[in-house]
Amino acid sequence: MTVNFSRHNLPSGPDSERLAEQVDVDLFRRIDRLEEKTEVIDFAFSSAILSLRAHCVTDPRAAAVETWEAAVNAMQLGSAFFAVTGITEGHVECRINRKMRALPAARGPRSSADAGNWLSAFWLAVICREQRRMTELCEIPLDRLRAPEGAYDEYIYHWVDTLQTYWLQRPGLVEKLTAAIEMSDPSVARIAPVDLLQGQLYPPINLFYHFVTRDTEGFAPALIETLKLHQAYWTLTEERATDIDGSIALGPLAIACLAYDGKFPIGVESDYLPKHLLQHTWLGEFPT
């Protein structure tokens, strides 16, 4: 039996469509500047994620090719972001927005190339089923992803380490996942607000636990609970309830994609998990 979990109401209609169009105009302008300088690549990456969320407001099932293209652009920029910040000279050849581009190395270290943005880039690579990019991201040393002290709780590094270990099939997965779970407990974590931790940050870790332990019976209930927490977080205040950042649950969607490809019964349909992204309907539509 499949449960239908409704997304909370978000502003829709012509205004939302115009917002998506304007976000894309700004994004494409930033993308076209990247071959001149990569100082704006972190802003371009953020804009690309915003574009994906905006498209999912008006196209909640991701039935339009434009929504898939928004996902691909975000994925390509996430990979490019970490590629250009990983070198100090020369260029990196990257396909972004249907075009191969030679992006120059970033000048100096970028504090934004951290564990938080790594998670977003990795989720997007999973959603787009880009295994090569997943591998490249997982080969980035953990020390390179450390943000200035006070930016993140320590759990996030255990979480990134867990995902890298899983994908690269390194030893110690159970111990690393256990550490991520324990360190993300509100009694241990001190930097992230409790509502953010419980509503957004911890649920993907718990969901991944059910996936990686092959708990096919427990995965769907855990996914539904994750969506309930996502919705509770994004409807806690009036301001959040209209924020398009809540339109999709990016991390849970990525883990659901892993489960879907692993033949898990997903057990829930929701606009928080756009159907055609989950089921990779558009895969191969154009080069990624």
Rank of each mutant, 00 (worst) to 15 (best):
L77R: 02
E175D: 12
A125K: 07
G108Y: 07
E66D: 06
T38K: 05
T226D: 08
L229D: 13
D143Y: 03
W234F: 14
S120T: 09
P193Q: 06
T162R: 07
F82S: 11
D153Y: 00
A121T: 01
F122Q: 02
A63G: 02
L27M: 08
V160S: 06
C257A: 11
E139K: 14
Q198C: 08
R133V: 03
A192Q: 13
D59G: 07
C138K: 09
P104H: 06
I49T: 14
V126A: 00
A254F: 04
E66S: 10
D153H: 01
T165D: 07
A80I: 10
Q22M: 11
E139L: 14
N206L: 15
T67R: 12
C56T: 15
Q279R: 15
R29T: 13
R30S: 12
L163K: 08
L103R: 06
T178Y: 01
L196F: 14
I156D: 08
M100P: 00
I224L: 15
N73D: 13
K263C: 04
V160K: 10
P204Y: 05
L168H: 08
A241N: 10
A222V: 02
P60K: 03
L197A: 12
Y157N: 01
A180D: 10
A63P: 00
R33D: 12
P14Y: 09
L201K: 11
R146T: 07
T242P: 00
Q200M: 12
Q279F: 09
Y233H: 14
S6M: 09
E21G: 03
P193L: 08
L124A: 02
A259V: 05
P104G: 05
A180W: 06
A256V: 03
E139H: 12
S79C: 07
Y202N: 09
E66Q: 10
S187E: 15
W234V: 05
R170E: 12
G218F: 12
V174L: 12
A62D: 04
M75W: 01
V40W: 12
P265C: 07
D24H: 07
F122T: 01
K263L: 08
R98D: 11
R110H: 04
P274G: 03
L137K: 03
P204S: 08
E130P: 00
D42M: 10
W118Q: 09
P141A: 10
A106D: 00
E182G: 00
